[in-house]
Nucleic acid binder design. Sequence first.
RNA 1: GGCGCCGUACCCAAGUGGUAAGGGAGCAGUCUGCAAAACUGCGAUGCAGCGGUUCGAACCCGCUCGGCGCCUCCA
Length: 489
Amino acid sequence: MLKLFNTLTGRQEIFESIEQKNVRMYVCGVTVYDYCHIGHARSALVFDVLRRYLEYSGYAVTFVKNFTDVDDKIIKRAHEQGVSYDVVTRRYIQAYHEDMGKLGIRAATEEPKATEHIPAIVQLTEQLVNKGLAYVVDGDVYFEVSKYPEYGRLSKRRLEDLQAGARVDVDERKRHPMDFALWKSSKPGEPAWESPWGLGRPGWHIECSAMSIRHLSETFDIHGGGMDLIFPHHENEIAQSCGATGKEFARYWVHNGFVQINKEKMSKSLGNFFTIREVFEKSEWSEEITGEILRYFLLSTHYHGPLDFSDQALKEAKSALNGFYDLFNRLRENNGSGGSADGLLKAAVEQRRSSFVQAMDDDLNTPAAIAALQGLRSDVNKILEKGLSLEARKNARQEFRSMGNVLGLFQLDKWQFNIELAGTATVTGSVRADHLVRLTDTEIERMIAERNEARVKKDFKRADEIRNELAVRRIIIEDKPDGTTRWKR
RNA sequence: GGCGCCGUACCCAAGUGGUAAGGGAGCAGUCUGCAAAACUGCGAUGCAGCGGUUCGAACCCGCUCGGCGCCUCCA
């Protein structure tokens, strides 16, 4: 039974979906004016895992994740680059799919864009004006915060406590400093749509209300996003949506913690961020850090807490993941010991799977879930020594695949899978030393064959030379007892 | 000024009332031409500090110290 921490109530609650077998969830995506950084990756990943776990638990999931494709920053970026705003948004939406794809983040069921929902946005805004919850000034429409008595219930703030205007100038035309724009009149040269209040474009918050209602109906199960969206974005969504429909909006609000650099929030404004593609493309990481490693690292901390990003942490994730792939390789090999320990495997799998499920049920405790998988790895290593049949070895691999799928791990047959997928990315734009130039599998295998010939002749000097050559290119080899050799990058 | 989060071994990180999971790094051993992997063993009498509640607290309460976030666009 899944429990989730619900920001709305401040407590962990048992998750119960509105419909029996279908969960409807909405997650705030990104504003597409730049490449995504690791913080965006974490958020996308947390909800990708939530979705996968709901599916693992037997639900169908209708998952909506939006793109904010019209706003001030996009317009500014378009001006800087001298292109139309939709050139900017199209470019970064594509980049989003590329980057998140490398991380194994599945596309949502629906990925709506604000600009494709203008009529729904206008309609919702009109509804709020007609109900007296919003007012029009000079072609702008504002939501009147004091008309929604429950304003602040998500972020646990009282209107009086919000020292509005302390850090920004208050617009004199607003009735209350916290009133926010539903519709903004446009200046010449800006993207604009027709509306009852003249040419303009939507404010930031209204699109999520309009699109979630459109795609998931007025009340749905889960609404997610980063912690920084709690206020004002999600608070405003609640005010608008509940104000307009008179019904509850989302039932469970789930928010992920930040990625930090040296204990400080990673953000554009602080300038202390790494984009996802930088992690893959730049510096010495490029041959070494795959999407799966980044994914493992991002899941090694509970989603609710902060997560410090560092080179060392990534390397540790790689080492840990390496251990799993070493085992998978061994499972493919027949060590000729028969199936005397097959029965032990079943017991171990059942015990570890139960721990895994228990951890995931506990508010998506991925570190504890990973610990269960590590436990199974240790168990299987020991059992394998005692002797597993071919079928049992296949089953063991399948168990890792099945639980791993919830976390998006262990799906590949070969270590370094993503290098193949990302292929072109690893060589673009970076100067690399000769010794880092990538060897093909065939070249590696030829070198290993030569080394093994040398070993047979007891020419260990030559054998070690070849191993060193490979080592310099980050290829690690392991000699097996039968005289053959396995290798990995 | 308001609201909130965090502080567990060398590093990362679970655990939220019953006597400290897991990983990485390290050390020792088995195995090995060597190496790698795997396996075995070693590692917090203590969970920022100080008080309190309790038969019992890392977990509950209070205070103190330290770090961070939100209140402005932000995943």
